Computed example of a mutant assay.
Amino acid sequence: MSKDELRTDLLRRRREMSDDARAEAAEAIALHLLVAPLISSASRVACYVSMATEPGTAPLIEGLLARGIEVIVPLSLADGTLDWAVYDPAATTTVTPLGIAEPEGPPLGSTAVQDCALVIVPALAVDHSGIRLGRGAGYYDRALANTTRPVCALVFAHELLESIPHEPHDVPVSMAVTPNGIFHVP
Rank of each mutant, 00 (worst) to 15 (best):
S41A: 15
L108C: 00
T81W: 04
P103L: 02
G138I: 04
R13E: 04
D88Y: 09
S76N: 13
M175Q: 05
R44Q: 12
L11G: 13
N180I: 08
P179Q: 13
L10R: 02
G109C: 07
V121L: 05
E162T: 11
D79F: 03
A176K: 05
P150F: 03
S76Q: 14
A28M: 09
L160V: 06
G130I: 12
L77Y: 13
T94V: 15
P150D: 05
R135Y: 13
R44I: 09
D4V: 08
A143V: 00
T111I: 13
N180M: 11
L98C: 01
P89S: 03
L10G: 03
T96Y: 06
A137D: 15
T94G: 08
D141S: 04
D127K: 01
R14Y: 12
I72V: 03
S50H: 00
A153E: 13
E27P: 01
S174Q: 10
A58L: 14
A52V: 10
G68P: 02
S174T: 08
G80C: 10
L64K: 01
P165Q: 07
G80H: 07
G109T: 02
S43Y: 11
K3Q: 15
V126A: 09
D83W: 08
S41N: 11
P186D: 14
L160K: 06
R22L: 02
R135M: 12
L33P: 05
H32W: 08
P97G: 02
P168M: 06
A153C: 07
I131D: 08
E27M: 09
I120K: 09
L60Q: 06
L133K: 06
A66M: 04
P106S: 09
G134Y: 02
V177E: 10
A23Y: 05
I182F: 04
S43W: 14
W84A: 03
V155S: 01
T148P: 08
P150V: 00
A145H: 12
V185D: 08
D20Y: 04
T92N: 00
V185R: 09
P89D: 06
G138P: 08
A78N: 03
A137P: 14
M51L: 10
A123I: 03
D9I: 11
R135D: 14
G63C: 06
T81P: 06
P89V: 12
E102S: 10
A123G: 15
P165C: 14
V155E: 07
V121R: 01
T178Q: 07
